[in-house]
Amino acid sequence: MQAINQTLRRIPVWAVYLMGALPAPWLFYLGLTGGLGIEPIEALEHRYGELALQLLIAGLAITSLRRFVGLNLMKFRRAIGVLTFVYVSLHLLVWLVLDVQLPSQIWADILKRPYITVGMGAFLLLLPLTATSNNWSVRRLGPRWRRLHWLVYPAALLGGLHYVMLAKGFQIEPLIYLAAIVILLALRLPIPGLSLQSNTADSA
């Protein structure tokens, strides 16, 4: 594992940002050119949301991978968090601009459709996390920064629940995502006799 960690340390963070951002324009291009099927807007909205959830789960897994396996991906966690918010925002923008379009209908949907209410709640919880994902905020907030970034836990649960509620009929995939989130959050509970090397980095 030490050799793997040494290799990971040589990978620049910008490469994670680049690789993580590439699917966004590609999926949009597919939507424009008919590559996403007969309902491109719905498909694009779904793909962006699914990528956001996958990145959110990846970010949650980083601490557990270091804690239980010894794999150190901590240097990439901020990039994964920012990319998560980017795809959540794209998911939301496709719904706002391409799907619903009418401002009055947007507000009505947020109030009347529970899965949209839950999804919007997750988005709002992620806003302060993204705004403070910088070194200046870490220095400025001090210990409060870590407590603030605990908001990722309810945001993740709401995101997984949003996907389950959005699914039409019984679908196993949304349940797998939600189960993964629950398991990763459960793994963060303190275990007697198990020390966590990066205790200060266990916030998000």
Rank of each mutant, 00 (worst) to 15 (best):
L157R: 08
A167D: 06
L127A: 12
H162S: 13
Q197V: 11
L96H: 03
F85A: 02
G193C: 11
V182M: 15
W150E: 08
S137A: 14
V138E: 05
M165E: 09
L98P: 00
P143A: 05
L158S: 00
R144M: 11
P192W: 04
K112I: 13
L148W: 03
A108P: 03
V100G: 03
W107V: 14
F170C: 04
I106A: 01
Q171V: 12
P103D: 01
L126E: 04
Q171P: 05
V152M: 14
H149F: 05
I172S: 12
I116F: 00
Y177H: 14
L184N: 02
S104W: 07
I176N: 03
A167W: 04
Y153P: 03
R188Y: 02
R144F: 12
V182F: 14
L196F: 13
L161V: 14
S137M: 05
V182H: 11
L129G: 01
L148T: 05
F170E: 10
V152R: 03
G121Q: 09
I176W: 12
L92H: 05
G169T: 12
R188C: 04
S195N: 12
S89E: 02
A156C: 08
P192M: 06
L93E: 09
L189P: 05
L90K: 12
I110E: 00
P114Q: 12
T130H: 13
Q171T: 15
W150K: 15
V100F: 07
V88T: 11
L196V: 14
R140G: 00
V118F: 00
L111H: 13
L111G: 11
L124W: 15
I116M: 03
K168Y: 14
L93Y: 12
T117R: 08
R147W: 10
F123K: 03
L178P: 07
P128T: 01
G142Y: 06
V100R: 10
V97N: 13
W136E: 08
P114H: 07
I181G: 00
M165I: 14
L178S: 10
P174Y: 04
P143M: 08
L90N: 05
T132R: 01
W150M: 13
L96G: 07
F123D: 02
P192E: 05
V152K: 02
Y153Q: 11
S195K: 15
H162D: 10
R147T: 15
A180T: 09
L157E: 05
E173P: 05
P114L: 10
G160A: 04
Q197S: 11
R147S: 12
L125E: 01
V118Y: 05
I176R: 08
M165H: 09
Y115N: 10
I183V: 15
V164K: 05
L125F: 09
I106G: 02
A131V: 13
V94E: 01
A156G: 10
L166T: 14
G193R: 08
M120I: 14
I110L: 14
G160L: 03
V88Y: 06
G159Q: 02
Q171D: 15
V94I: 10
